[in-house]
Design a protein around this nucleic acid. Structure first.
Lengths: 148, 148
DNA sequence: GTGATTGCAAACTCTTTGCATCCAG
DNA sequence: CTGGATGCAAAGAGTTTGCAATCAC
């Protein structure tokens, strides 16, 4: 499996776009950041490496990252869009705690299959999907966390 | 099954809120509007009935409608939040065409069951979920719509 | 060189909110 | 009366974009 940097370079080449120092810093920062984060959060980290890089560039580069397949985004309701790594990561959906915001990644082949089936039933060709389950995590009142 | 107006009135009573002419117009307009629509679209229709009603009031009332169980909202990616009727309607998810925006409502008991199961597996108590499948509808390039 | 890229700030979309006035119960 | 409701306009959050200067190839 190619290293992600290379995937991104190839993507740029394919699209006739250029590599720039800013993009290099943003991609590197992106790759070094785990979990779910907003563009703003990534921006803050990027600025730590190079304070001269503007927000707009981070927004623009994050879009390229998604397009290149390195990142995917998660529209979790109200706040800003969250990004996460997707290259080399199995597709997954999310289970989100309404109270503390904890996010658990979930995978279910049965659901994936049904989704394809449902789409096909309606003559749709499925591109992607978003599934988010909202509830209360064990700590915030879930099954094993009831207050005594 | 109680008429929706009554459900709303009871909701207001329960919450110690008042019925007002504006709310009456908005609720009536909401009930008379089928499909998926944004607050802005509803506002336009409301203004046709009474031009003096402000946007803010529509936003505020739509929130009450969701809370009362008459409406539910659908965050379909980028644009504004869309609302739809939920009182007396079976729960459903959505299949959205990325090209023309067509929305098809889908129901799948298998998925619902798996969702509950997944949540339970992680000790979560499920409150609600959002599942949107994106793809191309038959007309826009789906299965039966390939251009010759 | 030439077209892509950047930073900045302004624009934009959608939604919420402060506030003075007004209304329902 | 009194607390809730309204309309307005301003504020807000998040994101995009126009533009002149700059850079990659």
């Amino acid at each position: 499996m190619k290293p992600p940097h290379e995937v991104f370079l190839e993507y740029l080449r394919r699209k006739g776009l250029n590599m720039t120092p800013q993009r290099a810093v943003i991609v590197e920062t992106f790759l070094a950041t785990e979990g779910h984060f907003s563009c703003d959060e990534l921006s803050a980290r990027v600025r730590r490496a190079d304070p001269a890089i503007g927000q707009a560039t981070v927004y623009r580069t994050l879009k390229l990252l998604v397009d290149s397949g390195l990142a995917s985004h998660l529209a979790a309701g109200d706040g800003p869009v969250l990004y996460e790594h997707s290259y080399g990561h199995e597709h997954h959906d999310h289970l989100v705690c309404l109270d503390c915001g904890a996010k658990v990644e979930i995978v279910d082949p049965v659901i994936e299959t049904r989704q394809e089936h449902l789409a096909a039933e309606h003559g749709f060709v499925l591109t992607r999907h978003s599934m988010i389950l909202y509830g209360l995590c064990p700590r915030c009142g879930g099954k094993t966390g009831g207050r005594s």
